[in-house]
Each structure stands twice: as structure tokens, then as C-alpha cells.
Design a protein around this nucleic acid. Structure first.
Lengths: 185, 185
DNA sequence: ATGCACATGTAATACGTTACATGATTTG
DNA sequence: CAAATCATGTAACGTATTACATGTGCAT
């Protein structure tokens, strides 16, 4: 149900093809609403039938043909109504690593997995910071937040950043604890 | 696929009925692997057929009958193997509020939603701290981590706590930003 | 005696994943 | 010039969520 509004929100940035949306979902929407290309194509189909987006067929010569999608006024209105309602469902997290940590028997094995997670979190943070730099484009955060038309995308990026920072801190703490255990046991 | 191991991990705490598991998933596993009662019953059925858990039928007089489930040695071994493998899928987060923030038009409306989230995060943190107190049971964290048989549940609880702390910080930051915007606009 | 929470499920539907298909462009 | 990656999708299958169903016990 929410995927619908995630797609409409993505189209606030302007006309896009299914493929472009799937890239956008990979790099930025993934932090709060992951979706595979297949989900997006199906959803776009439905949205077009409901008149919330408009599809424009684009014939291409040296590439597969594509369809470009735009928000309609009805879509914009629907999204606006959604954005004003309190969320129906609480935040859901799916994290395989934490199942493994929960079931942990051997500290050495767990250490390796958490260490791997730490490296991956660092990489994600780096990428976020680069996205942030591109958004700010030379301005300070204060300037940006004062002047920018839409600040939503920046605020969700901040959420992604602070999530990964937290993640990193948790990894460090767990590694410290497990290190002591290995030394003791 | 991972739900299977979440259920096995839950049964590490001892024999439990489907209903008891669904309560456990509500209060603690929910932080990293949410599951509805229906999912759990189906999964337990499968696990029993595969010999990874053992079901014991318990006839009750003044309540509906129930089945109690225990890990078998095969289940324990399967879980152990799972816990040693690196995770296949990255962490997934589903957060409706962030879609609304992403699509935000009016700072006043968004403020109300984020403020609500802030209150809810505080409540969750409080409950976590109480669970933590029960686990520690008078000991300091250091004592607990040195002496406890299984520290996995404590480490996943810490993950839940630091996630909510991060959440709270993000809410405060967003509220500050939106407050300035309302004053300016 | 009415309503809420416990305890257990089934059925219908929605959603997500995996595998496949096709052609263009880039890289070694 | 072969292999990898980009760009765009479709089809089949498996998993999850929602709505419904049923009966008990407890509190007011």
C-alpha cells in the first residue's frame, strides 16, 4: 500500500522511466522503502490505470523503447493527503545479522560477522556523505535548509546517515564486548 | 527463509507455544525480525515436519488446547550453521513516516507527524530500558557480560536501544529545522 | 451480561524474489 | 572481438499480510 506513495513521492522529482526509478530506489529510497524493479513496474502500471500518473511512450533507436511517467494533478493530491495522515504501521526492520547475533554461541564467529557489517556500514556512510555534498552543492546546511524548495529529500538522507552512524557505534561496542569474551574464554 | 531461524533462535530460550512465541516476537524480536502470529504458526508447522522442532500436544481444561514446541538437536545444529554464515541480504527498513517526510510540502503538517514519532520512540526506549533492567537483575553490565551464558539477547537489545536513541536524535533535529522554517515562512 | 484479552487457526489477497529475455554500450 | 554492464522489461513462483472464524476466561 505504501509503495504506491513511495513511487508518487519519487515522481515529485520529475518525469522518470521505470529504470530510472529503480536506480533512485537503489541509491536513496532504499533507506526507508526498498523496492525491486519488478515491484516498480507493476506499481506504475496500476498508477497509470488509476490516473495518478501519466505514461508517455518513447520510441528509441539504439536502445529498448521505454515509457516515461509523470505525476498527474490527481496523483499529487492523493500524495498530499497521504503525507498529512499519521503512519498506519510502525517502522519495520529486517536484519539477518541480528538473528545470528541473538543465536550466537561462539564469540569468535560472531566477531567476524559484526566486523564485516562494520566495514559495510562505513561504505554506506561514505556514499551518503557524497550524496549530501552533491545536494548542498557548495552551500552550508543552513543556507540549503533556508533556501531549498523541497527539503524532504535532505531530511530523509539525514535519517539514513544517522542510522548508519548508530550502526557503526553498535558494531564497535559489540566488537569490544566480544573481544573481552574471546580473551577471557 | 530467515523467519525459520528467527523462530529457532527464539526457541533457544526454552519450550514455548505459538502464542508465547508471538508475544516474544512482539516485545523483543520485533526490533530485527517482525512476524505475525499466522507466520509463526505456519513456520512451526514446517519446522515440526522437518524435524527441527518437536511438538507436544497439551490438553487444557478451561482454555483452548495448545501445542508446546522444543528445539531438537537437528534444529540446534541447523541454527548453529546459519549463525556462522554471513548474511545474504542487507538490512531492510520500511518506514512510512519517511515517505511522508520525503514528500513533505507543509512544514507544519510534517512537524506534527515527527513530533508524534518522537513520543512513540521515547516510549519504546523506556520499555527497552525496563527489559534491560530485568535482564541485568541487579548486576552491572560488565558483570552480566562476563558471567551470562548467552549474551546474544543482550546485544540485540542494545541494538534496539541505540536504534531508538538515534531515532530520537533525528526527530529533534528535524523538529528544530522545521521550527525555523515555520517561523521564516 | 457485555466487552476485552487469550489462544488458535484458515482463506483470500497482496507483495516480493528469482529467473529469464533482449538488445546496446562499454571495457579489457 | 568477447565479456561485462547498462537499460528495459515479463513470467513464474514463493512468502507475507489481511480479514475472517471460533471458542474461553476475566473484569466491570
Amino acid at each position: 500500500m505504501s509503495l504506491k506513495y513511495a513511487v508518487l513521492a519519487a515522481l515529485l522529482e520529475g518525469e522518470a522511466s521505470g529504470y530510472e526509478l529503480s536506480k533512485l530506489f537503489d541509491i536513496s529510497f532504499a533507506n526507508f522503502w526498498p523496492a525491486t524493479p519488478q515491484q516498480l513496474y507493476r506499481e506504475l502500471e496500476r498508477l497509470a490505470q488509476d490516473g495518478l500518473v501519466e505514461a508517455r511512450f518513447v520510441q528509441q533507436e539504439r536502445r529498448p523503447n521505454k515509457r516515461m511517467f509523470t505525476l498527474t494533478e490527481a496523483g499529487r493530491a492523493d500524495l498530499r493527503a497521504f503525507a498529512a495522515e499519521p503512519p498506519r504501521r510502525p517502522t519495520a526492520i529486517r536484519d539477518e545479522l541480528l538473528i545470528k547475533v541473538q543465536a550466537m554461541e561462539d564469540p569468535e564467529t560472531a566477531r567476524a560477522l559484526v566486523d564485516e557489517r562494520r566495514g559495510w556500514a562505513r561504505g554506506k556512510l561514505d556514499r551518503y556523505e557524497r550524496v549530501r555534498g552533491r545536494l548542498l552543492d557548495g552551500r552550508t546546511e543552513e543556507e540549503y535548509l533556508r533556501d531549498a524548495e523541497r527539503i524532504g529529500p535532505y531530511l530523509t538522507l539525514l535519517a539514513g546517515i544517522s542510522f548508519e552512524e548508530e550502526n557503526l557505534r553498535w558494531c564497535d561496542r559489540v566488537l569490544a564486548v566480544l573481544g573481552r569474551r574471546v580473551a577471557a574464554g
